[in-house]
Design a protein around this nucleic acid. Structure first.
Lengths: 134, 134
DNA sequence: CCTTGACTTGGAGTCGACTCCAAGTGTTAT
DNA sequence: ATAACACTTGGAGTCGACTCCAAGTCAAGG
């Protein structure tokens, strides 16, 4: 699979895909006869994983470390697990902050909506008064 | 309240507080006789609001626009509401991505833990075999 | 054969959000 | 009253994460 197709499939620019490979977020992708990247299934799964982790804000640097450990083989799964656990903690913390902000946003939006309702009520009242109904 | 105290209270550097004021995230803070910032209650609430929004990733640029509209008075609450609603949508989307990543992290961590358990079981089995128990 | 267009590289540039710096002023403690 | 230290300003520098560029290679269509 060519870089452009991968780019389209995941919504990452080919520049980004090459950048990820350059810095070690993705191990070197195999090339076809003329030196062009040819992504296989495993590469695609790696891209997807990185895209997912990055979309949640895990730092490139940390992911490089993790991917490096994965390449080292199956001896050091403990270190890999530690990284994931630490990042999970940070992620949960960020999500809590975001939930808090979301609550406040919801509250503010509600206040704006109530303000509009009040204003509409006032207008109706004013109209009623003009018609001497109330 | 002096900038240093505000900095400590909110965990934002004084540089950041001055930066927020400079770019318009916070309206100009009153100064004491010798030209130094003296934050009042309202200023503190503004700082807290911005800190909260920023902690959830709302862009500085958007917040500048929102704060600008707030300064314009109570005519244009609709535009302000729109901004909040849009940002809430983006926030919810980010949180969903993060939840997805969190699920995957949890799954991977579980796999690592099971791997450790399996390895321990193998060791026990090996010991049993050595002792010719099984 | 020649153009068009995707690919390659290394390196430079950009962007958002701070963060730091130099040079100067003000305040407090010894 | 002099040192030590928080504050001021405008502007420059940094950092993370891309994003773009120039110069060159390769495959396919007219």
């Amino acid at each position: 699979m060519k870089i452009m197709e991968v780019s389209e499939q995941f919504g990452l620019s080919s520049d980004t895909l090459r950048y990820y490979e350059r810095v070690g977020l993705i191990p070197p992708v195999n090339r076809n006869g003329s030196g062009m990247r040819d992504y296989n299934e495993l590469d695609l799964r790696r891209v997807e994983f990185i895209k997912c982790m990055r979309s949640a804000g895990l730092p490139v640097e940390v992911l490089i470390e993790y991917v490096g450990l994965v390449q080292q083989g199956d001896q050091i799964t403990e270190a890999r697990k530690e990284i994931l656990i630490e990042q999970r903690g940070l992620l949960i913390a960020r999500m809590k902050e975001m939930q808090n902000t979301l609550d406040i946003l919801n509250h503010k939006i509600e206040v704006y909506e109530n303000a509009v309702l009040r204003k509409e009520k006032e207008i109706v009242q004013a109209e009623d008064q003009a018609l001497e109904i109330s």
